[in-house]
Design a protein around this nucleic acid. Structure first.
Lengths: 241, 241, 241, 241
DNA sequence: AATGAATGAGTGTTCATTCAT
DNA sequence: AATGAATGAACACTCATTCAT
């Protein structure tokens, strides 16, 4: 787990000291809410500031002083509300993953054809991804070095994966999708495709045309499963599966 | 007491949030070769050690002392051969991107059907990716914070992309692939799919069955372009495009 | 779990971080010797400086910067030679306990009467104690809070205790000392008496006349064991045991 | 942003290396008594909590938050009743030294022989010391760094010393004790012996048998003064002084 | 060519104390 | 009387880089 700068924790009592409980899950769930209005305001300001600073500088380059300065508070308050730099991160992730999960649950509009639903789903993902690109990128970055964040990354993926897999399976059962595909693996690959693509687009700044992106994504996704699309991106009734 | 040397002015966000001196090209091309045998050996040992250490700890967590220790040399010798931590990285990348480019150029065997060639190409990528997963992951990680590495990442991608795009275009011209696809965007998405997938598999440790992976990848890739595969993963001649 | 001042140690790799191995014995025994003359000199200067600073300010109030400043080195060198503030302390204790142990072993002059030997032994202890009072006081102080130092304190006591106990037992066997005394307990109490007294005198600054101190100490010690002394502090042959 | 309040200017060596504001007397005598019942209860709870916390963690490692938490009050209320961490300590000592002084005054029972009275006195000291070991240890610890506590330590010692000295002098006048002993020095040494011993036993956890301890203590004490005890620990009338 | 000693700015975290509510 | 939010100086430790030998 990370190395650190700064001074040694001053030993206390006689227990062997530890720096980070290591075990605790990143998503600690509930966070204590300050009892006063002023406290709640300050805490909220710190979270907002932390998100901005993290997104701009990355977690490791972000300094507590950056956060407190941006929140317009003194240095010390930060530690009044959070145990450590990590713990604000926890909190941020708790809310973002929540939002993303909800988005993934949201009805992609059950109307229309299969392709319409795929297209709607892609559009929806693009929207959420565009909004959270920097935070997602941060998780990705951290996941490369820290097992805890790797797990977080995979955990965030999960619901999307499951939904995709279920969708593919349903299409296979309906005789619409290629029955020779392994639904789980395909879901992982196609999910990765869109995930990777949005990061390239929204975070790394590679430029794409939105309409083209949505259509290409949808067409690749649909056709890869064995559906056939016509020139206008609709199910090609002339060329059924 | 106070010398004027001291520590490196520790990068911070205002300065280009870069891991390296911003201006210099990452792939500096030629590296000075030591004149004596002993020198060449030491230099080589350092590079090998650096690659190992970087792969294990990541660039930022790797310490010069880790590298020199692993190389079995003294601390100071590192700076005899390299200007900075970054410069070894340059050197590493010079060779790795070279290797990967060559791999991408390597004939995927022009024999067989279109699908056979796609499959062969996927297999080949998987092999190269498996071998270089940790270094690629490192570039990815750095790319999140450092524009120079972002460029590197994109540059490494380029040849694969171009080859894919050209391949798709050729298939479209031959009337084999869906003409409504935007070749560039599709190449980017499909390339990203496999790139993302191998990282998940080889670096993050998600488990997949190799045979299933190759087949699913190939089937998704081929079908997304409009080709149709039969149960055995061969071009389905009964269902031409 | 330990509380700490200063910044958190930068976590590294994926190991759960630890601040102080906690287990390691305080007297780690061998210390690495720098290979160059300059290095040896610097290291020695740091140890000397550390002893002075510790004695003046106490361990907890001593700052690394105080030590390096006194040693005339830069801040950083300290960590070139020592792992932590604790480790210099280790080293200091290694040498001091060594010195004290040797002193306790040194022939107290086997000549003269029993009382002469007791007197000589007391004198010797007073000399050593006067020289090391501040360091001993520091160990005492630390022993109140830190089990490791408590053990150290007791360990330093040991040889003196054993020697005293053996001496008492011998006198009892020779029919010179009161046979009803528990030798171990008596040795602990009498040893504590002199230990406590020297701290009072040499560290806390209570004033005593040296001659009176030696004589009173000797007389109390001897008579408590059942020996009888005459006006001049010699064995009272007129009043045998 | 920057208020003018902030943290305490953190003591350092140049300032009197003192735990407390140098000037004020430690035993401030009268403490302001809250006017309401609730107030008195809160204040009392804080004192009790402080004693417990100080005994468990030591003065320096004890945090105001530890105290208020243990007292079941809010953080801020502490400063409503006390000026500083030091001032609770004052209060504690006021009561403890009072208790100890009373104990030292308490008639050790004037009945029985000289030895009986010495034994009774030792027993009494042991009882008081056992009860207050942790607080006494705390004073000892502080006395190593803080002149004020050094004085306190010596002041607490005083009455015991005076009583011992007077006792010795009386015995000398009665022809019972060795006239060649310096009463003051002997009293200091013997007092230190028992003080040191009880700390070893009750605080540092060295194990002793109570009966053996009392007898050895009494025998050493009595004989060192020139009294002679028989096998049963009574004055040996067959061997008068 | 090689060694390893020296430099020192940088930062997370603690906590006594103040003060607005 | 009580609450708890806010303040900010202080310090151990890290490590890239320089340089004398």
């Amino acid at each position: 787990m990370a190395r650190s700068t700064g001074s040694a924790p001053r030993r206390r009592r006689s227990d062997p000291p530890s720096v980070r409980p290591a075990e605790e899950p990143i998503l600690s769930g509930v966070a204590t809410v300050p009892s006063t209005t002023r406290g709640r305001r300050t805490r909220a300001a710190l979270i907002t500031a932390a998100r901005e600073v993290f997104e701009e500088l990355g977690f490791r380059d972000a300094r507590i002083s950056d956060i407190s300065a941006r929140a317009g508070t003194s240095y010390g308050v930060f530690y009044h509300y959070f145990d450590s730099k990590e713990s604000v991160l926890d909190e941020l992730f708790t809310s973002v993953t929540g939002e993303m999960y909800n988005a993934s649950q949201a009805k992609a509009g059950s109307g229309g054809t299969v392709v319409d639903r795929i297209r709607a789903s892609n559009r929806q993902y693009l929207t959420v991804a565009a909004r959270n690109a920097r935070l997602i990128a941060m998780i990705e970055e951290l996941a490369y070095r820290d097992p805890q964040f790797r797990e977080l990354k995979l955990r965030i993926r999960e619901p999307f994966l499951r939904r995709n897999e279920a969708g593919i399976r349903r299409l296979q059962e309906q005789g619409l999708a290629d029955p020779h595909l392994d639904a789980g693996t395909a879901a992982s690959m196609l999910g990765g495709m869109i995930e990777h693509f949005t990061l390239l687009w929204f975070f790394h700044g590679v430029e794409y045309d939105e309409a083209v992106a949505v259509e290409t994504l949808t067409r690749l996704w649909a056709q890869s499963l064995g559906l056939r699309l016509d020139a206008s991106g609709q199910l090609d009734s002339a060329n059924p599966v």
